[in-house]
Design a protein around this nucleic acid. Sequence first.
DNA 1: ATGAAAGCGCTAACAT
DNA 2: ATGTTAGCGCTTTCAT
Lengths: 363, 363
Amino acid sequence: MIKPRKATIADVARRAGVSTATAGRVLGDYGYSSGEKRDLVLQAAKDLGYRPNQLARSLITGRTRTIGFVAGDIQSPFYAKILRGVSDVLEREDFGLLITNSDESIQQEVCAIRLLTEKQVDGLIVSPCDIEGADHLRSLAEIMPLVLIDRMVDGLQVDSVGVDSVGAARTCIARLIENGHRRIGMVGEFHTGPWTSLDAFVQMARSTAFPNLNLMYPSWQRFLGYVRAHDEAGLPIDSSLIARVNSYSTDDTERAVHRLLSVDDRPTVLFTSDGQMTQGTMAALITARLRIPEDISLVAFDDLDWMAFVPPGIDAVAQPRRKMGETAAGMLLERIEGLDAPARRERLSPRQIQRGSVLALST
Amino acid sequence: MIKPRKATIADVARRAGVSTATAGRVLGDYGYSSGEKRDLVLQAAKDLGYRPNQLARSLITGRTRTIGFVAGDIQSPFYAKILRGVSDVLEREDFGLLITNSDESIQQEVCAIRLLTEKQVDGLIVSPCDIEGADHLRSLAEIMPLVLIDRMVDGLQVDSVGVDSVGAARTCIARLIENGHRRIGMVGEFHTGPWTSLDAFVQMARSTAFPNLNLMYPSWQRFLGYVRAHDEAGLPIDSSLIARVNSYSTDDTERAVHRLLSVDDRPTVLFTSDGQMTQGTMAALITARLRIPEDISLVAFDDLDWMAFVPPGIDAVAQPRRKMGETAAGMLLERIEGLDAPARRERLSPRQIQRGSVLALST
DNA sequence: ATGAAAGCGCTAACAT
DNA sequence: ATGTTAGCGCTTTCAT
């Protein structure tokens, strides 16, 4: 591999018989330039196969036309779809996209952000792994535009995009109740968050002085929707119906679901709080040889590719993931362009998809 | 958002009472420095909250510690998993990852590569959308390390990673034949490639002067495996059993499969050539109300998350996607470190997973 | 071991 | 409209 020294603006200028400034002006498309010199420079650039060095340009302008994305795990369909939306918007604007995984670890998140800022990205989209104590995000927001996705952070006034988890879960659970379900199981990742017990959370959910909904993890928000729907229907909350999974692992989820199903009066339907939980739950139902919806009904938060095939089709709350990515990228670009406005909260509405995995119970 | 001017090496040097060269040496960890000055500089850097500007460093060293990845579509599980593997290896080496989508369009691929090279990436991993006429890749390979993934390019001597598609398909089809299947349908994306008709391909597959296997699209390679298995078993090839889909669209695939199933003597088993084809095929089978494996058997190339749940579990040829990404990234980093060796072809072996979607036919 | 100075490739004042 | 010059923040000779 021979690396021929690449042509610089000085080379082009020399060949065109103009100054570097003029060459820069036509090549960089800024400032004045006459048609004559213009052609000269363009021709010279072509002859030499000139390619601009964005690094040099960025060093001086202070802008890289590159943004960073810190995802939980880019291989999960949730982030992969979001990433696609982000990427589409950026491509249109000729921006680059640097990606990293946090694996839900605050240390990795900090490292990822340091890497990205040192590479001088113009802005960052982060799906923060902690909604509190995120001091690094607070100081980050002071030095560059930041958009949060999926989760918000306490006391951080920056743009963010997410979905109306509480409302969507409420609607979803309300339908189950209308269909005669009374023992509604839920499978969620409740490892994180300030509430030690689910009952404590339920207590608080019913008090008037409830903390800002946005400051809860999505799974807690979905649980809140679950509680709200029950309260509205006058149904009690039985916390033995909630499988509290302590990780995003499929195996842990499967085990938790098995425990949930092994009780005397097992739930007639299961509601899962996200894609990971849904996969573990499906695995558990298959192992337990339970048919959907004859033996047990199922509704999932987050729609996945296979839900349309798996007979009889799995009902889902579909999050507009690609749109979330597009929105986040759009907001970030506006900030990068200099938009000075109060922090915006974009709350997209999930779509309820019914396919036949919920049995109507005759009560 | 107030942007306090960021501390530079000059600021640190001034505060520490040393020259910028010395400050640079300790901060950049190169050259000599005495313990005394060292502490001074480190302390000053800490006080000022100094963060190096990698851009400036890169401009001078000519290396950005960033590589680019041109995928077909990052939201597909295939690329998303590969990307994760790439990302893991890079993270360990403190490299950044810029990603782009080609959407299987040569124009977009060219644009993506231009964007990435202008940002001065140290190397590129590309899943090329065309295996011939890829001049831009040839000239790219002359100026920076390049690793190809999933597909190779005619006449391009660079490192590449893929799987043994021919062998894996052959093994897979051979098992179907052993199980008594005689009418084996295949669903593949055969839009691209030099062969106008499947029969012409089969002719060539049987001739001794066969072109380099690596210079075929994966779906053609898989079809070759299909042909080989048939030839070995002395079974004729009936091209009416091959659904030739002309895009990666699920709808097109579904239609093609419906046509395949509407013939008098329809196939007893379907073999799909990749994840996209599998999804379309599943949708078609559900619509046609065919049960797996009672009414029709199914084997898929590429294992997807849901294949373990969908009763009775879908048999699959599992590609080590994450490993493919790790391997590609590893090879690229070696080249970036200066490795000078002939082009390497890494061919990973897929794993055959049997779950129960193939019925043993009594013949 | 340290400092002075040059310069990576480009843009941005400032002249003219 | 064009050229001259001075950097952006850092690394890298080359002296000392």
